[in-house]
């Protein structure tokens, strides 16, 4: 474990806690894309299948349980909670996210490190995570007004993968044979997708005005 990875995990944890806090306290999920939340639930479900077969550390297992629990409970809140579900703007959140799942699955079947069930699903979860934010970014473009909790959620979510890139560089430099091109490229693509959001988020923060994304 290195400081970059710890910072990445804590930033990731903060992003889901910000979202859960928002939904749980103000009982609203306005501006949040259910599609992105469903994709994240699939990402965690397919990535943490090894939670039963391999044990790395208490920390690793605990964080997996937290990410699984939080992502599924956010989906549950947005789909079934009587108050929250009414605040979900279904007609704006129209990204065909299933069109993201299939190509990622096909790509994972083609490009992976080992052709085993767990490894292919793990690779699929990497590719899917890279694009999972798209429905949320599209929704933010549409609704244009971003309440700062949703803005913080997306900002933290993008930041965590940025820290992971620093972690991969550190591990590449300090651990022999630590080479995982698939992870690195997927992580880089994921972070680049946030680039324009980061730009506008930083501009709004610098000019201290409400975050507005261009149409």
């Amino acid at each position: 474990m290195n400081i970059f990875r710890l910072a990445g995990d804590m930033t990731h944890l903060a992003s889901v806690l910000v979202l859960l806090l928002k939904i749980h306290t103000i009982k609203s999920c306005a501006g949040v894309s259910l599609k992105t939340q469903e994709l994240y639930a699939i990402v965690f479900a397919t990535r943490y299948l090894d939670i039963f077969t391999s044990f790395y550390s208490i920390y690793n297992t605990l964080m997996k349980l937290i990410f699984l629990g939080s992502s599924f409970s956010i989906v549950w809140y947005m789909r079934y909670h009587k108050t929250v579900r009414r605040t979900y703007d279904r007609e704006q959140d129209t990204f065909r996210h299933w069109f993201l799942v299939l190509p990622c699955l096909l790509l994972a079947l083609l490009i992976h490190e080992k052709f085993t069930f767990l490894e292919v699903l793990w690779t699929f979860s990497l590719y899917l995570e890279a694009v999972a934010i798209l429905p949320q970014l599209v929704l933010l473009q549409r609704t244009r007004n971003i309440d700062n909790l949703t803005g913080q959620y997306v900002f933290l979510l993008g930041g965590y993968r940025g820290f992971y890139i620093l972690n991969w560089i550190y591990r590449y430099l300090t651990e022999p044979h630590f080479v995982h091109w698939i992870t690195w490229i997927a992580g880089l693509v994921q972070t680049l997708l946030y680039a324009d959001f980061f730009y506008y988020y930083f501009q709004s923060w610098k000019n201290n005005k409400k975050l507005q994304l261009p149409a």
Partner: peptide, 10 residues
């Protein structure tokens, strides 16, 4: 060893 480390990240 390396393989074991492959998926020690979240």
């Amino acid at each position: 060893e390396t393989d074991q480390n492959a998926h020690d990240e979240l």
